[in-house]
Design a protein around this nucleic acid. Structure first.
Lengths: 223, 223
DNA sequence: ACCTGAACACCGTTCAAGT
DNA sequence: ACCTGAACACCGTTCAAGT
């Protein structure tokens, strides 16, 4: 029963927690982890410093909310008509792509206070492992292994993007790293030296998926 | 042929890059990521701000050096008389334990500029995978999967330690989280709700090792 | 209830000046 | 060559004061 009072009406540009978080995500995407400052946020939103603190607890609060929003979005896919394996791969790739688009999440997840959205991920994975017939006692370990692998790879991958000047092409970064690997002493680093070319030509997404598949193979293998 | 000149003699307490990094590690261990400030470092070392910048490029330089030192230490184990599988597990557990002792590494590795020590880890893993007879084309993907899983889990694990007030007992953190999981709606979160007790009683190290073993099983399985 | 902006207590880094 | 400490340009957060 909505009553038409002035109080419930809102100007489109009224400051709100949602608008602050949305602006923060835009700033983080544009200029990375160090690009988000409270002052910059206030300037973008055409408001004062104190106004932000009325809607939001502190900067960390904004960061957690931004991370949750992006991750929740990545997990919001329908997996109704997929096999359990396909559904697990869909979750994994969803998170992987989200990290690719928002590299700043990586650092954030390594210090997440509210385990909020990662629980949703664990839930999705666990349900599919049940559907796969993984024995009860192993379900938790298996879901944790998958979740950790996914978050780990994604974070690792984001490190690459964050550690270089924003705007650097990913291929250039990998190319430079491959050069370094190729220059390593073949006696001391036979393996790394040997795979330098693979690094130059490999597909991150495919390599990521290989790990997921190996985990699934190990988990579902008779023991 | 050492000549006895005054120049090569050094007082034990002379400032040096090594002493700065060592002091930084001690501060990070004691009070976490936010506990390291350049001013605090100068105070601990009884010196001025500028003196530090003579030996060290900047704060990030110190952080990277500290991370490299700890990780190198964790990898400095002899694996001569181990099977390839055992050697891989040894590397994995070494890193896991290093993260446990120095939780601040987690955040650090998610933004590592110099891939320095992680290359050593990849090398160790890759050599063992060769010894296992993993086909050449898969060696790189397999080594990367193991490395990413290890770094990922360790980072994830460190997040737990970092996100709470330093000094909080790990069991208390897990207990509180288990309570949260148990309180989740069983209809919406059947899996997570159901494994709350497992979270309370599980062994992190064992669970970590399960993932390593599943990956190894998947990698070495005929395909 | 919501917003402003000055003020506070910190940062990392630089640099002229010392020895 | 190595060290000092004041100074600079930033931070995040608070808070009296406004509407």
């Amino acid at each position: 029963m909505p009553t038409t009072t002035r109080i419930t009406e809102r100007r489109d540009d009224a400051l709100s927690r949602e608008r602050i978080v949305a602006a923060a995500i835009a700033m983080l995407d544009a200029s990375g982890e160090g690009g988000l400052t409270v002052r910059g946020l206030a300037a973008t939103l055409n408001t004062g410093l104190g106004a932000l603190y009325w809607h939001v607890k502190n900067k960390s609060d904004v960061l957690v909310a931004a991370t949750d929003a992006v991750l929740a979005d990545a997990l919001a896919t329908d997996s109704a008509d997929l096999t359990p394996e396909e559904a697990i791969r869909a979750v994994a790739l969803g998170v992987f792509d989200a990290f690719d688009a928002h590299p700043w999440i990586g650092v954030q997840l390594s210090r997440l206070e509210s385990q909020g959205t990662t629980v949703q991920m664990l839930e999705r994975l666990g349900q599919q492992l049940r559907a796969l017939g993984v024995p009860g006692k192993l379900q938790f370990d298996a879901a944790a292994a998958l979740r950790n692998y996914i978050l780990g790879v994604a974070a690792q991958n984001a490190a690459l993007a964050t550690s270089v000047a924003p705007g650097t092409r990913r291929d250039d970064v990998l190319g430079a790293m491959a050069d370094t690997w190729a220059d390593l002493d073949p006696t001391e680093y036979p393996f790394t030296h040997g795979v330098a070319d693979h690094l130059r030509n490999h597909d991150d997404r495919d390599q990521f998926l290989s790990g997921v598949n190996w985990l699934l193979a190990g988990i579902t293998a008779p023991h």
